[in-house]
Design a protein around this nucleic acid. Sequence first.
DNA 1: ATTATCAGACAAACCACCTG
DNA 2: CAGGTGGTTTGTCTGATAAT
Length: 273
Amino acid sequence: MQIRTFNHHTFHSGYKGKSGGIHPYFEILYVTQGKATLEWMGSEYEVPSPSLYVLTPNTPHRIVRFQTPFSFWYIELDIGDEDAFPASEQAIHWNRLQKEADYESDELRPIKQTLDALSMALELKHRGDKRYDEEIVMLDIRKTVRLIQNDLRNRLQTVNEASDKSSRDFIQTLMRHMETSYYEPIDLTRLSNRVHLNSSYLVRAFKHETGVTPMQYLNKLRLSAAISYLVNTEMGVQQIAEATGFNSIHYFSRLFKRKYGISPQQWRLANRK
DNA sequence: ATTATCAGACAAACCACCTG
DNA sequence: CAGGTGGTTTGTCTGATAAT
C-alpha cells in the first residue's frame, strides 16, 4: 500500500475551484469543519463534521454544496492487491451512516482518535517536519480501515438478529452491482440473470422500490461519471464515452445533451477554470 | 409474491452523413 | 478528424390480464 496523494483544504465563501474527481485509487475523506453534500455513485450524501467517507476506486465523487468554512483532508491510496479494504457494499453502508454518526460514542471514538492522530501526522508531512513517519501513518490508515470494518460487522449482526431479511434484497444487490460496474456492458438480461428473476418483474419491482428503472439508474451513474471525467481529465469525449460504459460517442452525447441541455464538449468548456 | 404474454410507447443503439 | 445530428432498427418499459 502506498499513499498516492494527500491534501487538506478549507473552502471559504466564494470558493469556486475543483472539489472532486475520479481515479483508480481508494480514498479516505475526513471532514473536520462545516457541512456539505457529497455526490458519490449516483447518490447524494449529507456531510456533517466530523465525518469520514470511504471512496472506492474508479467512482466519481464531488462536493456540490458546502457551508463555509468547510474543512477536510483526503488521502488517495494505491492499495495494490490488498483485500483488507472495504468492498463497495461496505463503503456505501458506511458512508450512509455518516449523516448521523456520533464520533463521541464508545463505538466511534476510537476512529476519531486515530483520525486526529492521522491529521497531525499529515500536517507534519505537509510542513516537511522531520518527525513525520510514513510507517506510523500507514499503521493509522490500516487501523482506521480495520475499525470501520469491525464497526460495520457489529452493526450488521444486530441488524440481522433484529429484522427479517427483506425479500427485495435483490434490488440492493443490483444497485451495488451497477454502481461498481457501470462501465461494463450491462443490459436487462444480464441483470435479471444475475438475480434469477423474470426481467419484466425485475423492472417493475426496481422502479417500485427506487423510483427509476434499472437502465435509468445505470445511465444516471454513467453520466455522473462522465461529468467527473470531463472536468477532471483531458480525455476526449470518445474516450469518456468508452470509460463510462457507453457503446458509442453518438449515443453518449445525445443522452448527455438530453439531460444537461448542452453537449459534453460545451459542458467541459463551460465548467473549466 | 412471482411468472408469463402481448401490444404499444418510448428509449437505446447503430449507421450515414454533416459541421467546425 | 473529433464531435454532433437525423433516421432507422432493436431493446426496454408499462399496462392489462391471467395463472401459479
